[in-house]
C-alpha cells in the first residue's frame, strides 16, 4: 500500500496479539519504507502502543511476522533488536531520572563500543539540541517535559539507529515544543533515519509523515499516503474534527 517504495525497512505482516484472552491486534500488517516517516494513528485502546512494543520485542505476538531489513525479529530479545538498529523514544519519555542529562544521552550509545565516535556524536547532539548544552550535568528528572523530550530524542539518536520508533512524541508538550519536536523529527529523517511514530494527534502527524495507517480496535481500517489521508473525510471525522483549531 505504500506509494512506490522499494523493499521496506520494517514490515509487520499478519500479526495477532493477545493479552490473556483479549485480542489486541487482528491480522495487523504495516510496512515502513526506507527513509520514510510512517505514522500510526488511533484512539485510546486501539492497540497503538502495543504495536510499538511488538516492534521492540517487549510484547510477543501470538502469530505473524515482524521483519527488519529483511531479517525476522520474532523471538529476539529487546536488547538484540536494539542492536539491529532500532532505537526508541518511549511514551512519556522514560528518562533515567536520577542520572544526569549527559549520562542519559550516553546511555543511548550503550550498544556501541567506539568511544571516540560516541564523543563526537554527543557534540553533534548538542548542536542539534542546543538547549541541552547547559543542562548536561543536571538530573534528567529535573528538566521540563519539553526538555526531557529533547533528551529522549538525543538518547535515541546516539545509537546511530536506522530506524526510530516513537510513542506519542508530542504528548503533554506545550504548543511551542510540539512544533519543535515535529521539526526535529523531520530533520532526523532527512539525515536518513526512518521513523515510525504512534500518534493521537492526527493533524500534526500527517503534516510530517509520508504514509499513515489508522488503527481501530486492533484492525487497520485505513492506510495510504499521508496527504491523501489528510483529505479523507473518514479521518477528518474521526480524528481531525476540531483538533485543527487547537
Amino acid at each position: 500500500m505504500t506509494t512506490s517504495a522499494p523493499e521496506p525497512l520494517l514490515a509487520l505482516s499478519g500479526v495477532n496479539t493477545f493479552y490473556g484472552q483479549a485480542q489486541v491486534h487482528f491480522d495487523l500488517s504495516i510496512t515502513v519504507a526506507r527513509g520514510h516517516i510512517v505514522c500510526l494513528l488511533g484512539g485510546n485502546a486501539s492497540g497503538k502502543s502495543t504495536t510499538m512494543k511488538i516492534i521492540l520485542g517487549l510484547v510477543k505476538p501470538r502469530s505473524g511476522e515482524v521483519s527488519f531489513d529483511g531479517a525476522s525479529l520474532v523471538g529476539l530479545s529487546t536488547p538484540q533488536i536494539v542492536r539491529r538498529g532500532i532505537a526508541s523514544v518511549p511514551e512519556a519519555r522514560r528518562l533515567f531520572a536520577d542520572m544526569s542529562v549527559r549520562e542519559n544521552i550516553l546511555m543511548g550509545a550503550f550498544v556501541r563500543n567506539d568511544r571516540d565516535a560516541v564523543a563526537q556524536d554527543l557534540d553533534r547532539m548538542l548542536t542539534l539540541f542546543p538547549k541541552l548544552g547547559q543542562r548536561l550535568s543536571q538530573r534528567a528528572g529535573s528538566l521540563s517535559g519539553g526538555e526531557q523530550q529533547m533528551v529522549a530524542m538525543a538518547r535515541a539518536l546516539m545509537s546511530r539507529p536506522r530506524m526510530i520508533v516513537m510513542d506519542e512524541p508530542t504528548m503533554g508538550l506545550s504548543p511551542l515544543y510540539v512544533d519543535r519536536v515535529l521539526e526535529l523529527i523531520r530533520t532526523i529523517n532527512q539525515e536518513g533515519v526512518s521513523v515510525f511514530m504512534v500518534e493521537q494527534n492526527a493533524s500534526l502527524a500527517l503534516e510530517i509523515a509520508h504514509e499513515a495507517y489508522v488503527l481501530q480496535t486492533g484492525k487497520i481500517v485505513l492506510s495510504g499516503p499521508a496527504r491523501a489521508l489528510k483529505d479523507d473525510p473518514r479521518v477528518r471525522d474521526a480524528y481531525l474534527g476540531g483538533s485543527e483549531a487547537a
Binding site: 517487549l58 529487546t78 532505537a87 522514560r94 531520572a97 546511555m107 545509537s159
Partner: peptide
C-alpha cells in the same frame, strides 16, 4: 531507574 527503558537502550 527504569527497567523497560534500559532494555530499549540495549
Amino acid at each position: 531507574q527504569d527497567r523497560d527503558a534500559a532494555m530499549q537502550m540495549g
